[in-house]
Amino acid sequence: MHNAKQPLLVIENLHVAVDDKQILKGVDLTIYPGEIHAIMGPNGSGKSTLAAVLAGREDYTILQGRVFFDGKDLLEMSPEERAAAGLFLAFQYPVEIPGVSMLTFLRTALNEIRKSNGEEPIDTRTFLQRVREAAQLLGLGNDFLQRAVNVGFSGGEKKRNEILQMAVLRPKLAILDETDSGLDIDALKIVANAVNSLFGTIQSYLIITHYQRLLNYIEPDYVHVMYDGKIVRSGDKTLALELEAKGYDWLRSETLSSIELPSTTT
């Protein structure tokens, strides 16, 4: 049904190394607007590396492969150009920015993105309204917005703050890297609800998770399993349940027997 549309993200045969150690060993993935994809996989399989490479982290060496975002060569773009083009990464480990208030941070970010897209700075009223709505959606008080970015935030607050930023910046594609880990069930529901309610404004999600838990609340169209730097299986949401039931050890043996990969989006 999406084939008439242009894909939002196309990853082709991506090989990535860090410090001479190869981490991604040929990743292929295509995401169309309106799709929610999930990537699962054991720790160390390369999920965060993939997310970081997509966001533009510079310590990685691209050995092979191509990535297109909205038809543009993503690997040629700086992190800020990617943000302006509509790519957003919710960090697995959000970074503290002492001395910079959430409001200053969000307004600077939003206005820089608008500037890159040839738009005027947002007026203060609209901005504050948008930020307060986002805070409310995430169950965060207005005083939260006066605090320095991630400084002294609890683990759960940091994760919710990533989604708050997403809600304010309204990207086309949001990559959520283990946003669920460290959240209690109530916080998890809040986050899932925010993600779901923003779906539409945000065209597509790529949800990286270790556990199946989050996928009870956010229903993916596709589930991919990453193992040792490759996507070794793809399927619909039932794959997540299968993984949950069989555990990641099951993969290890399957991978060794070198299974045929189903193609997902073509």
Partner: peptide, 21 residues
């Protein structure tokens, strides 16, 4: 890097961090 992924050009990110410091 975190600030750049939110759309701040590197120079603006630098100024914001230095100013806060």
């Amino acid at each position: 890097f975190y600030l750049r992924t939110r759309g701040l050009p590197e120079t603006v990110a630098d100024v914001l961090l230095l100013h806060a410091f």
